[in-house]
Write a protein that binds this DNA or RNA. Structure first.
Lengths: 183, 183
DNA sequence: TTAAATCTTGACAAAAGAGTCAGGTATACC
DNA sequence: GGTATACCTGACTCTTTTGTCAAGATTTAA
């Protein structure tokens, strides 16, 4: 532990450190889902509309929606009057499910045979540190928190104004922590 | 919030969701730093040694150490008897500092003018949602937690056996949460 | 039956990230 | 001085990710 331990978040963040990536597919795909969530219950939304509202090309939106459709989160209707719609209520779709269906691979570390440890094996077939790794606890801790949080938030939770949504998060973040401690 | 809210972590993680990336540079660079940390106080460590211990090519290790040297985390000595060493005590180098110096760009969201919002602007110059974004709270919440955690852990904290290190993390994770709630 | 609107698909091009290579510079030791 | 060891650097290649394109299939409606 370092002497900085007592510095409040705002100070720590002010340093501008930037770490851990969200891919374009995850970000833009989630935004498309939010458009569909806001449209839930109405006529299907056409890709041109989403494209305009998100500042993305129609073709790209199409590609993202295809990924989401294949994950059964979205349904499509062809032809005139066609378009896209969520395949179920936005309350029952977590952002974890959305992000996962959009990410090729990513961070998740729970054990030595996890994707992360297999992926970063250097020139060898197996990571040198499989049997004991000083760094794994870093990613394990972050993974737990991240997936815990993402599984607790639904698309419906993101549909309000930003201030309200932020409130939801503060509440859920506390719940997640409480949950973690029980285990 | 979804009905899954009460499911313990292990169940949530078992689904195998994989989200948010750690780049190769971050992972391997951090490992090199850990090698240097374990060698702290002794003769400088040559890149060949690190290369062998990590299963990476010498050239690649060299490249990573160059990034770390430019961030003033590492010092190098040329010539016979040369090598690399931490530029200061492993207790005073946080993994946040390490990761940051290794990452080209990544997730950090604290406001509308953050890197994240500038980066994901689609075809336009500015993100459509700058004035109010339902998704930003997701990344803001994760960013806070991640950078909070990374700034509280030092290289020295990672030098022990994996089980011990995991213990440190459980302790620090709780502290971070407590800290967040004060604000 | 034809036209218009819209989704479907796979191939492709552009950009970013990962990792290698070759030629150069500094230091220690004989 | 000469030689061996080791760092320094930028250019280059390979792979993955991002985003576009073109040709096809389905549905509605006139």
């Amino acid at each position: 532990m370092t002497k900085e331990s007592g510095i409040p978040n705002m100070d720590r963040l002010a340093k501008g450190e930037e770490v851990m990536k969200v891919t374009a597919q995850e970000e833009y795909g989630l935004r498309c889902m939010l458009q569909l969530a806001r449209n839930f219950g109405r006529e299907p939304l056409v890709s041109r509309m989403i494209s305009e509202q998100e500042g993305l090309s129609i073709d790209y939106v199409t590609k993202l929606l295809m990924l989401l459709r294949r994950a059964n989160l979205v349904e499509s209707v062809r032809g005139t009057k066609g378009g896209y719609a969520l395949s179920r209520d936005p309350h029952s779709i977590t952002i974890g499910q959305v992000i996962q269906s959009l990410s090729t691979e990513g961070l998740i570390v729970t054990s030595a045979d996890s994707h992360h440890c297999n992926h970063f094996s250097g020139q060898l077939d197996e990571c040198v540190h499989l049997e004991g790794c000083g760094i794994r606890p870093v990613w394990v801790t972050l993974s737990k928190y991240i997936s815990g949080l993402l599984e607790q938030i639904s698309l419906a939770d993101l549909m309000g104004e930003e201030v309200e949504v932020m409130g939801v998060f503060e509440h859920v973040a506390n719940e997640t922590e409480a949950l973690d401690k029980q285990i």
